[in-house]
Design a protein around this nucleic acid. Sequence first.
DNA 1: TTGTAGGCGTTATCAG
DNA 2: CTGATAACGCCTACAA
Lengths: 349, 349
Amino acid sequence: MARPPASPSARKAGPVTLGMVAEASGVSPSTVSRILNGTAVVSAEKKAAVDRAIAELGFVPNPIARGLAGGRTMSIGVITQFIDSPFFGVAMRGIEETLSEAHYSALFVSGHWDVEVEQRCIDTLMGRRVDGMIILNGRVGDAALRQLAKQVPTVVTGRSIKAPNVYAMDYDHREGARLATQHLIARGHRDIAHIGGDQSHSDARERLAGYQTALEAAGIPFRPALVECGNYLEEGGRQAAERLLASPQRFTALFAANDQMAMGAAVALHKAGLRVPQDVSLVGFDDLALAMHMTPPLTTVHQASLELGRLTAQALLEMLAGGKPTLKLPEPRLVERDSVAAVARSIGR
Amino acid sequence: MARPPASPSARKAGPVTLGMVAEASGVSPSTVSRILNGTAVVSAEKKAAVDRAIAELGFVPNPIARGLAGGRTMSIGVITQFIDSPFFGVAMRGIEETLSEAHYSALFVSGHWDVEVEQRCIDTLMGRRVDGMIILNGRVGDAALRQLAKQVPTVVTGRSIKAPNVYAMDYDHREGARLATQHLIARGHRDIAHIGGDQSHSDARERLAGYQTALEAAGIPFRPALVECGNYLEEGGRQAAERLLASPQRFTALFAANDQMAMGAAVALHKAGLRVPQDVSLVGFDDLALAMHMTPPLTTVHQASLELGRLTAQALLEMLAGGKPTLKLPEPRLVERDSVAAVARSIGR
DNA sequence: TTGTAGGCGTTATCAG
DNA sequence: CTGATAACGCCTACAA
């Protein structure tokens, strides 16, 4: 009877090597390698013998050696901006899940929204011979990206770029923002303020554009004084809301370009004695896990972050397999919760 | 004039190898290796020549090859439970920062609170020949940990274990919980409910114990009916609060074992028409980034998560350098914000 | 102090 | 179909 395979971490001395498997099953190392990789057809009996030896010895191929031998390292570099981002964190989970199912490991690094840091991350990752790269809303230029893609297949989000060996996936931020604003308009709001993101990011510009589009479609003039920008963080949202509150502008609704800023804005509103949604309606963007647990639960535009992670990983996997991915992100959709109220129609007052 | 070193990612063909550096500087590969690792004393002139060659060629040692050659991989395995945890996310950031300063890379993997998954993570990580391991509140048994530590230095949080090559760091959860409860008591509350965490985790048990300790110290009898447990997630907190609300028990304050559950509880309170803090005071635990941006901003026990990450990494680095770390986590402290109000003394009503 | 040789665990390229 | 043999890029005796 075959002894149950020993857990690798329970092994005593040096790890079981491919060579040991070869010896134990009476074939050459090359044959074992072939079986492992499906590189060539091997006679059934030898394969059986090897498989048994692998199981008995509890052999696990060494990715390091594999990588050195010019083969693949079975690892994928993933660049995010901050590893503790509530939005990208979920995407990373999706990436990790999908990748590990395919026996790949993800190497997560943070670019800190800084081109140079990000470039260094890329260099580090390439030094570790990753087989592919996923860049979540990176800041490096398209040129650097093309350069990178010459070495490994690359999937990027947050930008549209057409280049060999690069697959770009992005949300329709504009449409999402339009939806949010339109929802407010449909509830009777006309004085709608917007807290935008850092306008050097295309997604922030798109969201602003979507806001404008909805306004225009409803025949409401766009008033620049009603938009203040933050940095996509709670604090920035709070400050932007405070500026709005301090200005002479009046508004009955607020559309924040992401949930974190919406959260910050909610605090500012609260401190100013304004209630959500009775005094001002609030809509966010992203649908972070916490959106539904805010008080009141936040109406927001759903971005499938887990899906985003899964799909980017899946796309990369397809490229690694020599295919051409055609995956697309789901359409944005509004999630209605309790932070929006209708404005009372003030007919002929 | 020496040309500026080419960025690795700008290189054309194959990477620059140690051998090429050796050739360019007219020494043997071993000498270059020695200089790189400070393994032996080398004549100043040769060292200068090599250093120059390294700079000119933009040589970066290949960690993969290094790892294979039995040296170190300059990578550290980090096991968390969920990569998108708001609490551990920040800790991971600290780890990444500290490690990268020392030119180490972190390999983050998620154990999903599951012993088997976690064990598989450990095996994967060891397969990748990490030089050390950081396990954030892991679930594997102490035995497995000791076994692991035989192979690489290990730092763990969330448990106390004394073993060779293992360094355990933990917070004083009990004291933190005591502080929170005491604060409520000092504000006049006597009917204080508690939303606990999963009692199979020691930190959750400790926090409950701290709550009891404070009660006892104030001569307030502990009432089991006032404690409901969740899973450290918002949803669990909401449900626990709902159970509490549905029970015949009355309470004027609520101490949640973490901020996420406090957030969920806030929603339940809100839906029940109860205001925080006017109707019920609320205290959390962890001081997540979002605690200060809740409405109202949450009074909570500060756990220095960034510090936690930095210190675990630093401790590991010290072990890697052959030292014995003595680092300790800062004491818990209460952060007062706006979610607690005093109970009006109801004398002789 | 420095160079040579061998090996780390795999994969790839040849012959057979 | 299968087995030698040579890399992969670096480290570490051992020898000089």
